[in-house]
Design a protein around this nucleic acid. Structure first.
Lengths: 258, 258
DNA sequence: CCTGAAGAGAGAGCACTGCTCTCATATCAT
DNA sequence: ATGATATGAGAGCAGTGCTCTCTCTTCAGG
């Protein structure tokens, strides 16, 4: 388990992922960084991102505050590590949930993806907020380290949509399909080329809507934007929203005959 | 203009809205509170909610830090005032945008509502984040003061949907209308009773989806969840999303014949 | 008009934060 | 064994929210 822990956290450093720590000192250092991330994750989960304190982490680590700066450049650096850590945990859970549904059940895979996101978000509201809530002011996540793990969910979603389209399982969407303007069409063409997709413009734009809508629904629930007692059957509401969104994206119903 | 300022900020205190300050001292006090809110709004807009500092506001006010505690109980209280202030500004802009479209143009009113939300959010990202981003940790907005202004947008949206339904202008939605589970149906019935609505369950649930999806799309854009160069034609993307969402909610196209 | 109460501001202080600097010690490679 | 390096401790600075006390001003009632 501790070995797993180290490996998992080693993924946080893409450059160091291939060079395993060899000397005892390097091993100890890697372990300390892993401990800092673990403690930071706990503080983050309990108190939220804004209250994440390097001094508190140092106390829990049994070390004086200045010592943690040997391992973490500053507070932002730790936030970045926790950002990557959370993105990867969410990505792992989404991948597992999607992978547990037959590949040809596109509607079921979409529903599994959505439910995995919601389940993780409700279980880890503070970490979800770090990923999808207000950006921490003055903090800009370094794109070269976060785009990889940060795009795992949308990559999985695109895979489902494109797979359904290639399998000829995308049903004609609602009556009214708004025209795709020229500029947007250019963006979509770039995305299609980058991911090697086959889906046409309108469907791709609808996929983007399903993407943002999924996180909109989850954020409303996690951030308490629904009133206090407005929706008591939140799981049913979410499932309804997922079903409508699947339809919007042209996906067949979950479990539909292959 | 300063008079307007005072009146606008007086709305922040529902209890005091009817009792105008009479004595000079009360007038001075109201003015000071208004100044604090104004300075807080500026700090909030520039530095974000987490960096909002009462000491900094006090400095800008030309007063020692402890003095502001005569007017504002604590930092949370100021955040609550700014929350109400922002909710009302957003509500005003949405109401104005919706009101500028003919009442029978339900699709147009929906589009105007969505664009007003997006425009305000892009213009005031920090204040939008305070309303719809991660909740400030340890801070729970007092419902009795914020629910009123906080529900203006959804109230306007519900008005459009219900109006369209009552006018018989709601078109049959997409092929697949997922069943509404029992618990969700109960929640929807309560909402229908509370607002005196006529829309049936499925349509009401779709309205909730349009609601959360609208803010999901706006949040993605404001919070930078889209990649850096993924979407360059963001207004076109948003308009496309709005059009699909209108269709999801059963609304006719904007400007459709009355 | 005078006086006492209440309002308002100043200042000191406490506990906390991020972060830097210096100094001493422990560890490692040569 | 030795010299370089990694690590931790401690002090310190500037900032934060918030409280307490002390003084001065303003106002209302006699």
């Amino acid at each position: 388990m501790p070995e797993d822990r180290i490996e998992a956290d080693a993924d946080v450093f893409p450059a160091a992922a291939d060079s395993r720590p060899r000397t005892p000192r390097e091993r100890a250092r890697a372990q300390t960084v892993a401990d800092i991330v673990r403690l930071g994750r706990e503080h983050l989960a309990v108190h939220g991102a804004a209250a994440l304190s390097l001094r508190a982490v140092a106390r829990d680590l049994g070390v004086v505050s200045s010592a943690v700066y040997r391992y973490v450049e500053n507070r932002e650096e730790l936030l970045t590590l926790l950002l990557i850590d959370a993105y990867n945990e969410l990505g792992d859970e989404v991948d597992a949930a999607v992978g547990a549904v037959p590949e040809a059940d596109f509607g079921g895979r979409f529903a599994a993806l959505g439910r995995a996101v919601r389940d993780w978000a409700l279980r880890e509201p503070s970490r979800y907020a770090l990923l999808f809530g207000s950006p921490v002011p003055g903090y800009q996540a370094p794109a070269e380290r976060t785009t990889g793990p940060g795009t795992r969910v949308i990559t999985a979603l695109i895979g489902i949509l494109d797979g359904a389209f290639r399998a000829g399982r995308v049903v004609a969407t609602g009556r009214r399909s708004p025209a795709v303007a020229a500029g947007l069409a250019g963006d979509l063409a770039k995305i299609r080329a980058e991911f090697g997709l086959a889906v046409p413009d309108d469907l791709l734009a609808r996929g983007a809507l399903a993407w943002t809508s999924l996180f909109g629904a989850v954020s409303f629930e996690v951030f308490g934007q629904y009133g206090a007692g407005t929706f008591t059957a939140r799981e049913e509401l979410f499932d309804h929203q997922l079903a409508v969104l699947a339809d919007v994206a042209g996906l067949p119903a979950a479990g539909a005959a292959v």
